[in-house]
Design a protein around this nucleic acid. Structure first.
Lengths: 156, 156
DNA sequence: TGTGAAAATTTCTTCGC
DNA sequence: GCGAAGAAATTTTCACA
């Protein structure tokens, strides 16, 4: 049995591999190998380790939301009654329109990122969230323009 | 008539392929083919079309931010002076710690998602953003817990 | 436009260092 | 833990329905 990679125990080579694979997960191992001056087998081994260690969570085709009909994005700040907070989170988590849920400090309990087809669906969703038992109030920030949205983690 | 896929012109097969490839971009075409009752060549053709149409933006290894040392996430709401707003956006866009920038309606001009190593770096970043010429004030919501963070678009 | 099978590449495994 | 070379599998191409 080979050892798992401990927290933060990734070296310079691993970092380069992560950078390349975040940009294009279909980059041939041969290309990575020659670029980094190592063998293909090593590339394969390293990538397998990164996956096993959970550093690479999965390989994903990144889809353009607008091109598949999700034309509206919004950020919704939610205030919940503390006693019912965990129930509220469970309800929110189940909603397919809710893509991100963050428990935050400050005047709001939670910040959500939601995606829907159009304004009508957003209105419906805001209603739905407002009607969850335990939700005190919500504040919707409609996204007019996406200036930047990058899911690739910068590796230092 | 052979043509590119027009906006929203994707059929049931394409949708299934998108779902599968968002979950695991390394799924063998042979498996997709047998699952959908089509040939491998057709799977390949469809995927190429989806990429060419920009519906699939890229194939990406999804990295766990915490496992590579990005232990702190925060949502920052920014109010900017209207006259200097576009300059402010340009400055924000250049910052590597800033992963998402949304132009929004409401009392704030912009909502940011940022990722850094620790609280000290967050404090430094908030200072930096506050000092951008044109930024009136900022409000930071420190993320205590990530309840959900899914980048896979639901295909209806 | 979709198919089936061959051709070209890529990925994976084994073995020796 | 790494590299080289062969084995296995996948992706790509092509002629044809």
């Amino acid at each position: 049995m080979s050892e798992q990679i401990a927290e933060g125990k990734i070296d310079h080579i691993d970092k380069k591999i992560l950078e390349i694979m975040q940009d294009n997960a279909k980059t041939p191992y041969s290309q990575i190998a020659s670029q980094l001056g190592i063998s293909e087998a090593t590339v394969h081994l390293r990538i397998r380790k990164l996956v096993n260690a959970g550093i690479i969570k999965r390989f994903q085709a990144v889809v353009d939301p607008e091109k598949v009909g999700k034309r509206v994005t919004a950020i919704i700040a939610v205030v919940a009654i503390p006693q019912k907070y965990s129930q509220v989170l469970k309800q929110l988590e189940k909603m397919p329109e809710v893509y991100e849920i963050f428990d935050v400090t400050g005047e709001y309990s939670t910040i959500l990122k939601v995606r829907v087809k159009n304004k009508e669906e957003l209105a419906k969703l805001i209603d739905e969230i407002g009607n969850i038992d335990g939700v005190e109030n919500t504040k919707t920030m409609y996204v007019l323009r996406v200036i930047k949205e990058d899911t690739r983690i910068k590796i230092e």
